[in-house]
Simulated assay, not measured.
Amino acid sequence: MKWLLLIMGILILVLLLLIFTKVRVYIDFKRVQKNDLIHIKLSAWYGLFHYTFKVPVIKMDDDSAAIVVKQEQGMKEEEKKEEMKKITPEDLRDEFADMKEILHHVVGFHRTVRHFTGKVQVKKFTWHSMVGAKNAAHTGMLTGVCWALKGSIIGLLTTYFNFRIMPSYSITPDFHRWQANTTISCILQFRIGQAMVTGIKLLRYWKGGKANFKSRKLAKLSGDSNKQSF
């Protein structure tokens, strides 16, 4: 009996520790000429636990309309796995269809997700870009459009997320050549318990029975075994 109480006490302690654990998400995106880099790192317990996801190569497939990405993921350098993956227009279509399916089945989806994002703290947000159209007049117009678009996007983000700092962003015009380079760097922080509560709410307010998912990742939940991954 004492051993049972001890095990239950340890499990409760671990659960409480997990619920109150803060997770930091480091996101870096760079677009320089035709080279793209996406780097995502998850960190908890002051770096004791960390997981990285890196997509260093994004290019178009010569034989199809698919996007080819080379991604690396793992907890340690020696354990990182590298794989090539194709993202086809059909994959994107299925992803949008799945999102529509979730919105259809979950009551108050927007309210639930917004409640969670409101608790996600943004510790850092920088977004700097350089654009050019070779022609001075066209470059000026393009710069103005980019300023308006970027301002609208950041305004939307500050509405949904809890910004702890002022976002830093800029657009530098290049009047001598075609150019569309950008770098985004941000740090997000939230508690695992908050994410767990959001997941429970989404399941709780699910309606309408089983969803008909289309993407390979979620098709198994619909009992569709015909979806195969590369």
Results as ranks from 00 to 15, higher is better:
W3Y: 12
W3F: 11
I7K: 05
M8F: 13
L11M: 15
L15P: 02
L16C: 14
L17A: 14
L18A: 15
F20Y: 14
F20S: 15
V23A: 14
V23D: 07
I27W: 03
V32N: 09
Q33A: 13
D36I: 01
D36V: 02
H39C: 04
W45S: 07
G47L: 09
T52Q: 10
K54V: 08
M60Q: 11
V68D: 05
Q73K: 14
M75G: 13
K76R: 15
K81I: 05
K81T: 08
K81N: 07
E82P: 01
M84Y: 03
T88Y: 01
P89Y: 06
L92G: 05
L92I: 15
D94T: 08
D98M: 01
M99C: 03
K100G: 06
E101H: 05
L103A: 15
L103F: 10
V107E: 12
G108Y: 12
H110N: 08
V113P: 00
V113D: 00
K119L: 08
K119Y: 04
V122Q: 03
V122W: 02
F125A: 00
T126R: 08
T126M: 12
W127P: 00
V131N: 02
A133F: 01
K134W: 01
A136P: 02
T139G: 00
W147A: 09
W147S: 07
A148T: 11
I153A: 09
I154L: 10
I154Y: 03
L156G: 06
T159I: 09
T159R: 07
F161W: 06
F163E: 02
S168D: 06
P173C: 04
N181M: 08
N181K: 04
S185Q: 11
C186I: 06
M196L: 11
M196Y: 02
T198D: 01
G199A: 10
Y205E: 01
W206C: 03
K207Q: 15
K207E: 13
K214T: 04
R216D: 09
R216F: 06
L218R: 07
L221I: 15
S222H: 05
K227C: 10
